[in-house]
Design a protein around this nucleic acid. Structure first.
Lengths: 239, 239
DNA sequence: TGTCTATAATTGTATATACATTTAACGGAG
DNA sequence: CTCCGTTAAATGTATATACAATTATAGACA
């Protein structure tokens, strides 16, 4: 069990093997994969270890199990990587409209308890905070309220955000490896009403976006869009 | 280990206990829950069984673990569903809550110009129209306003929607090959206010979902969720 | 032919045990 | 006081084993 040189747990080796076999269609959609006992024998592990590998792949949605029957490759694959990392400026220019923005705030803050959780850093550490209004043909279309890990991105405040959006700057600097979106419907608070020039009863789409690079949480942003001006859309084919 | 009368696995009992304790703030966000050994002792199970319960709650996103430190209640709560073909009933049951629904309308209509476009059929053709309120612990959480291609699914009205949601019925019948989502923020209309029991100023997430099977448009649904009760969330790794 | 039954295969749950790894905290050496 | 090693606590990985539950199938029986 000396893993100093080996590093990979055995259940992970089995997961990788099955994952690969699904990807290259050795086990096509709907196919039955070898039973736990056989996997255990082939990889010289106990059944419990094979079981763990399979259970995790089931949790990931790649396999389904039926007691008494066997373990099968999921037919409906590939939930879409929804809500891509769209750059709002590119999106607007793609509509042949004019993009502009206002930087209405940029400072350095100590993170409180709540923010520390969202940014994955310790209470009291520093973060940069920027508040930018993105405009399409001069009309506010998105309010970007962003916190950035100051340790990882010390030069963040030196950027000229008229030229480069934070989104683009950060993703150029750090290769994006993971992204999270949480979408809800809200009413705007006072500040949001003013900056977006909307009424208190205009429903807004709130997108909470967090981005990681190599396991490091780089930034979290709160993107507020007036509901009548913006839609998220996705269409995906399922294998 | 005779479970004929008991039914619930022991790891499930522990999961439920912890889940409940998180909900009622016995373990508030960020708090440390008892270590595996202690849970095992308290519930008179082996450490592996306690471990299973905790691992599954981690997979569900309710807990995070740090080796050497302990197991903690996740700070960022309330991730709900992905923007995927989730069955609302399964989703609610996954939260250990009670699912129910009201079928408030079910009829056969001739499609008008607008609907014909959305359903991809000809004006004057028939479609079924259902209006269902989905409830979590008796509280309305989603209004499903659905149109179904009557030519392809002639038996749609014969279903018992208390047992099987339209979503599940349709996807069992037609293998899902393509899905489209358009998400926006809206205020509820009069009917929606009444059925969802919300005020006119409650912002709502409106998800327009259309599903195809083998190139055929099966159904389009308008899903309205009160904003304070529902979130869409997606997290994806980018290769 | 059709129906029931036993059986084998496979997954599901549970335990006891062992050792590895990570982290914080404590205490001593300098 | 700082640095460093030890230790205790907690999670992480792995095994061998046992029995339960579910399902299909093959064979017995009427």
């Amino acid at each position: 069990m000396n893993r100093n040189l080996e590093a990979r747990p055995r259940y992970q080796v089995i997961k990788d093997f099955i994952y690969q076999a699904i990807r290259d269609r050795t086990y096509p959609a709907g196919a039955c994969i070898p039973p736990e006992n056989e996997l255990a024998k082939q990889f010289s592990v106990s059944r419990m270890t094979a079981n763990r590998a399979i259970k995790e792949l089931v949790a990931d949605g790649l396999l389904v199990r039926r007691q008494g029957l066997g373990t099968f490759v999921t037919r409906i694959q590939a939930e879409s990587p929804l809500l891509e990392v769209r750059n709002i400026a590119d999106e607007i220019r793609g509509r042949h409209h004019i993009y502009s923005n206002d930087l209405s705030l940029l400072d350095r803050v100590r993170v409180d308890d709540n923010l520390a959780g969202r940014l994955g850093i310790r209470v009291g550490d520093h973060a940069f905070h920027s508040l930018i209004v993105h405009k399409e043909n001069g009309r506010p279309i998105q309010l970007e309220d962003r916190y950035v890990n100051a340790t990882l991105v010390p030069d963040y405040p030196q950027q000229d955000f008229c030229q480069t959006t934070p989104n683009r700057y950060l993703s150029d600097l750090f290769p994006l490896s993971e992204i999270e979106h949480i979408v809800e419907a809200v009413l705007p608070n006072k500040q949001e009403q003013e900056l977006l020039k909307i009424s208190p009863t205009t429903p807004c789409l709130l997108v909470n976006r967090r981005t990681w690079s190599e396991g490091q949480l780089i930034s979290c942003a709160r993107l507020v869009h007036p509901g009548n001006l913006y839609r998220l859309s996705s269409r995906s084919s399922l294998a």
